[in-house]
Simulated assay, not measured.
Amino acid sequence: MSDIADLPYRPCAGVMLLNDRGEVFVGQRLDSVVEAWQMPQGGIDPGEAPLDAAIRELGEEVGITPDKVELVAEAPDELFYDLPEELIGRIWKGKWRGQRQRWFLFRFTGTDADVNIQTAEPEFRAWRWVQPEALPELIVPFKRDLYKKLLSIFGEALRTHGGSVR
């Protein structure tokens, strides 16, 4: 295996989806044995715009169509996280050291009936709505700082749209 520092970051788009009660969507990954929940996210295809990737991932992972969301905010910069050393080589065939992510905050204009995690290639075994400030404690530890940064970046927009962030 090559030196970890030489590995690139996987380009990714992430979605913070806010309902009309100010809660954020999280799903529990199918491939995880730990009690970890995360927001929808996934790779950006070559030549694909990050916003388009975010909308595509929302459909692929959560079954939500583009007409059920409104863009509220976009993180101004990419956010990065590193995989723990023991996961490098086990995830993504050892090609990446972590992810560089573009994040988007969307308001969900649909109903819970519009959410369908039983997609063609399911990623989540369960889903729920949570208060934004609960996000860092729900995610795997190596992504916790990134989620805290997201709460700071989207803090004002979350407060404006009914979410509480302490």
Rank of each mutant, 00 (worst) to 15 (best):
T109W: 06
Q131W: 08
R100Q: 09
F142M: 09
V24K: 00
W127D: 06
R90L: 14
L79K: 02
E86H: 15
D20R: 10
S2Y: 13
G22F: 00
W127R: 03
V140Q: 14
A36S: 15
E35F: 10
F80Y: 14
Y9L: 09
S164Q: 15
R29C: 09
Q118G: 11
E121I: 15
E35W: 08
P136R: 00
E156N: 11
I4R: 06
Q131P: 03
R125M: 09
M1W: 13
A49F: 08
G89I: 00
L58M: 10
G162L: 03
H161R: 06
P141G: 07
E121H: 14
T119N: 05
V33S: 14
P50W: 02
I55M: 06
E74I: 11
V15D: 01
N116K: 08
R90G: 09
I4Q: 00
M16Q: 06
V62E: 01
F25W: 07
K143Y: 12
G22N: 00
G14F: 06
T109F: 04
N116Q: 11
E133D: 15
T160K: 08
R128Y: 05
P40S: 07
E48M: 08
P76S: 07
L18D: 00
R100T: 09
D82E: 12
D20Q: 10
G110W: 03
T119Q: 06
P50T: 04
D67I: 06
E70N: 10
E74C: 11
L105T: 02
I64D: 03
G110M: 01
P122Y: 05
G47H: 01
V140K: 12
L51I: 08
N19A: 02
G155N: 02
F104S: 00
R10Q: 14
G43V: 13
F124E: 04
L105W: 03
R125T: 14
A73C: 06
L51A: 09
L83I: 02
P76D: 08
I91K: 14
L150V: 00
R21H: 11
K95A: 13
G89R: 01
T111M: 03
L138M: 09
A73K: 06
E133P: 04
R144Q: 09
A126Y: 10
P8C: 05
T65A: 15
F142C: 09
W92T: 08
E85C: 07
M16L: 15
V69L: 03
G163V: 02
A53Y: 01
V140H: 13
L7F: 07
S152C: 11
V72G: 00
L51S: 05
T119D: 01
E137T: 12
I64W: 01
